[in-house]
Design a protein around this nucleic acid. Structure first.
Length: 464
RNA sequence: GCCGCUAUCGUCUAGUGGUCUAGGACGUUGCCUUCUCAAGGCAAAGACCGCGGGUUCGAAUCCCGCUAGCGGUACCA
């Protein structure tokens, strides 16, 4: 059997997208399962949308999730270069070759003419596509245009009147009427290739991609790739078009309605393992029906053809629940490390985390109350608020009760609390408001024991 | 508009012709626990399997039509 080779092919046009991670997850797991290779190819052929630093961010995201590739620009590998802008000659060579094979042609149409055609088609309610104006230019004409240094693109010659049958491993055979498929631009006038030449055809062939996993938005252009591959006579990879992740309103997951930037999840205190586990459940399910399982198990059971073709809605609530589950699975030490990493620039929280007397207890108490690492702060940092006269009365009672305690431990403190609650008819919430500034918090007896009688009474007198 | 894909609780899903009066998870509600909030435990509500036709002794499961949603329709990926 052929070696399994999967890839992600992100374009460095912005922040690292959660959808890219979704793809990478399946690519990575499937490659690992089959002792294959997972590689990253940077697709920077759109010079206008290129964003400085975006490439580094993609790799940082991959590292954060632990979806580390086997081959890439930064890792090297036998199929490099792994960045398309460094492969320009290759694409140009193959574009010319395709022309010779009769599968492509020079097009000298100007942008203005194209716009004109487009406009007319829209007016006539006809499919908007290239009118094949340059498809049958004579050899002389082409030579003349070339000699005159006219700007040109190279277009794919889609056969006419053909039923194009392609296969997607998730959906099966799909038919397309070739007359409705555009003679797509393969090589742009700036000499850079488009996706239709560089990625799905030349690179995936040269880099020996065996299982091509990509978003469903590519399904409509599959026939173009299929035909180009046929012109070259190249063996095709198995195509898997994963469903697109959606917003709650069912539209394609976007910045506007959802959170697409990987960095956002990190800043909100989500754990990469939890996100991955959640993502694994999108359009796929564990054979035993398990919801929570480690990466090793995902690798063991993942099958690309088991992916469902329906676009799932990204449910942040369920992700939060799962994140909480992952937080609870951590040992205190592991959680402490994650908290330190998360709060390293927050003086206030770091102060708490550095207090060796208190940190373990605090972390343990907070653990069941956190959905994200971000929740930790409001659990341990009190809010400064003004108290009502009624609440100040409760403080008086508290001072009296606590003042009598000689053996300061949580059981005795709890007894004192109950006493005060009974005497003042106050609700537990009031106590929490007094101590934390919020109507809830970590268990008071434990907290007060931890802080010590002196500090507690001191604080109370300040608030009275 | 045209082309393509898809269609089970609000959401993620199980289900591949009979075991489905459709199972699980998130969320929601109630109860237990209780110093608050969580966590945990136990319950409950929630899907005439988008609609309409077939095929079959029998369909959520197969076929057709419709509808709806999504994706594509760029010298973007």
């Amino acid at each position: 059997m052929k070696t399994v080779r999967t890839r992600i092919a992100p374009s460095p046009t912005g922040f690292p997208h959660i959808g890219t991670i979704y793809q990478a997850l399946f690519d990575y797991a499937f490659a690992k399962k089959n002792n294959g290779k997972f590689y990253v190819r940077i697709e920077d052929t759109d010079r206008e949308r290129l964003v400085e630093g975006a490439e580094e961010k993609i790799f940082e995201a991959l590292d954060w999730f632990g979806l580390v590739e086997d081959e890439s620009v930064r890792k090297g590998g036998p199929f490099g270069p792994y960045k398309q802008s460094e492969r320009l000659q290759i694409y140009q060579k193959y574009a010319k070759e395709l022309i010779e094979r009769g599968g492509a042609y020079y097009c000298f149409c100007t942008k203005e003419r194209l716009e004109e055609v487009h406009k007319k088609q829209t007016e006539n309610h006809v499919a908007t596509m290239y009118d094949k104006h340059c498809r049958n230019l004579s050899k002389d004409e082409i030579a003349r245009n070339l000699a005159e240094n006219k700007s040109y693109v190279i277009r794919l010659k889609i056969p006419e009147n053909t039923d194009i049958v392609v296969t997607d491993e998730i959906r099966g055979e799909i038919h397309f009427d070739s007359n409705l498929i555009e003679d797509a631009v393969l090589l742009k006038s700036d000499g850079y290739p488009t996706y239709h030449l560089a990625s799905a055809v030349v690179d995936d062939h040269l880099m020996e991609t065996s299982h091509l996993v990509r978003g469903e938005e590519w399904l409509s252009s599959l026939p173009k790739h299929w035909i180009a591959l046929d012109y070259f006579g190249w063996e095709k990879p198995l195509f898997f078009h994963t469903p697109v992740l959606r917003n709650p309103d069912k539209s394609k997951l976007s910045k506007r309605h959802g959170h697409t930037n990987v960095v956002w999840y990190k800043e909100e205190g989500f754990l990469p393992e939890a996100i991955l586990n959640y993502l694994a459940l999108m359009a796929w399910s564990h054979p035993a029906g398990k919801e929570i399982f480690p990466m090793e198990e995902f690798i063991k059971y993942v099958e690309l053809k088991d992916l469902k073709p329906v676009g799932p809605i990204f449910d942040l609530e369920k992700l939060k629940w799962m994140n909480g589950e992952y937080i609870r699975m951590l040992s205190v030490l592991e959680l402490e490390r994650k908290l330190i990493e998360f709060y390293k620039e927050d003086q206030e929280v770091m102060h708490v985390l550095k207090n060796s007397q208190q940190k373990d207890t605090l972390i343990t108490l907070a653990q069941t109350r956190m959905k994200t690492l971000k929740d930790f702060k409001e659990l341990v940092i009190p809010l400064q608020i003004d108290l009502t006269d009624e609440e100040k009365l409760v403080i008086k009672a508290l001072q009296e009760s606590f003042g009598k305690i000689s053996d300061w431990n949580k059981d005795v403190i709890l007894a004192g609390i109950r006493e005060v609650l009974a005497a003042t008819k106050a609700k537990g919430k009031v106590l929490y408001k007094i101590f934390t500034g919020r109507e809830k918090g970590l268990p008071l007896p434990d907290m007060l024991e931890l802080f010590g009688k002196e500090k507690v009474l001191n604080d109370l007198s300040k608030k009275a």
